[in-house]
Design a protein around this nucleic acid. Sequence first.
DNA 1: TCCTTATATCTGTATATTACGATATTACGA
DNA 2: TCGTAATATCGTAATATACAGATATAAGGA
Lengths: 91, 91
Amino acid sequence: MKIEGNYTEKAELLKALAHPTRLCIVHGLMDSECNVNKITGCMEMPQSTISQQLAILRSKGIIEGRRKGTEICYSVINKKAREIVTLLMND
Amino acid sequence: MKIEGNYTEKAELLKALAHPTRLCIVHGLMDSECNVNKITGCMEMPQSTISQQLAILRSKGIIEGRRKGTEICYSVINKKAREIVTLLMND
DNA sequence: TCCTTATATCTGTATATTACGATATTACGA
DNA sequence: TCGTAATATCGTAATATACAGATATAAGGA
């Protein structure tokens, strides 16, 4: 079993989720979209940290941001990521 | 949504899988156990690298090694890890 | 245009991860 | 005990990641 590009891609999806903050964010966004300000408040972390974590999730196609005036609302758009998080959160 | 220890633990499970070599190893071990020598050959990587990757998987309870004489055969023992890998490998 | 709010990006720093060769450890037969 | 095969561990250098403050960018109303 030699490593094919396929494993690399899948590992990268997992890596994006493999961080407590990001996992929490994705889990929270699974049912309803949310703006950065709210996420920042809920996580009780600096806004810049949250923005960076969102950027990682975005770059892997896990979440998508939708601009609403001065705000951006994020939602989960990746099916596999949803399934993984659901699986993880179910005992 | 504040981060609970729960997310940390789940993120660590993902992190162990979030590497192409380790993902490949776990996938390969899902159906039949295998010794280090064979894994090393299949992956075409140095034995020490493989041993270290196996150590990470072991430390997270994903795989288990069973000594058979001079050999150690590894197998997947973590249900969640199995489910995640299965999910990932199915289109 | 200016000011305010919301958010992304940049920068610097500390820490973690990865890869591999060298070496230590374990098991076993002669 | 010695030699060999199998495997784990150590040491090191390179690279990636995480975090947070400072600042840039985008949106909108006065």
